[in-house]
Amino acid sequence: MVAASTLKTFSVTLRVWRQAGPAAAGGFVDYPAKDISPDMSFLEMLDVVNDELTAKGIEPIAFAHDCREGICGTCSCTINGKPHGPGKGVATCQTYMRSFSDGDTIVVEPFRARAFPVVKDLVTDRAAFDKIQQSGGFITARAGSAPDANALPIPKGDADLAMDAAQCIGCGACVAACKNASAMLFVSAKVGHLGLLPQGQAERDRRVLAMVNTMDTLGFGSCTNQYECSAACPKLISHDFIARMNRDYLTASLRSAFKPAPANTGGGAA
């Protein structure tokens, strides 16, 4: 028989950022977390603490979460200074209490970035990512108009590399980890995924220009190539995609500068 775990329960102190609303001032508050099983996930520990706070008449800690299996990108705490906590290549929801020891003080904060304002406690507003996507993060393909899927063979290496980029869960840890709060890893993952595929070529220039420009207007900082982003990424997306995007952006800028404008623009979906 393989025992799940033989470790005893333990206790930690949570030092949690509490902030009543976007305009309110925030601050750290300490709460004890007792009888914690090492097999609990970090978010399950927060559930237990929240039920205790509720019983005491204290409003529970608001935190973002949903799938709890590392794929939806909703959870977003910075734990002991690291977005998504101590583990490599995992999200907060996949962080287990066995990563901590009895008596630890664990500091829990929201993702910090100008473009991600705090909504309440540990919850931030990451709508800026959606706005970047809406500006160009797609391949136009109306339902009903697609050719046969095997009509266009795609080398396995290209498809695999596109998939590496496409794994991005849109959590924003890259932004939170960056001292400039840059969104370059996120945007480059999108640009890389679609730009690597033959289907994505028609809109390749337009896409990278639009997405980068939108990113810049939303208050994200610039990239200074220190790669804190890829180190914090729960999907370990490589910063090589940033280099790729820079190249794409430069080429697209040059091409758009020297290309004669068509007499008639438009004809788009809208």
């Binding site: 797609f138 697609a146 046969d148 063979p153 679609l194 595929l197």
Partner: peptide, 16 residues
């Protein structure tokens, strides 16, 4: 067909 046209990176064989 629709998903491939949108750029969904389905698994592929070496022949593409």
């Amino acid at each position: 067909d629709q998903c491939v046209a949108q750029g969904v990176p389905f698994a592929r064989e070496y022949g593409g």
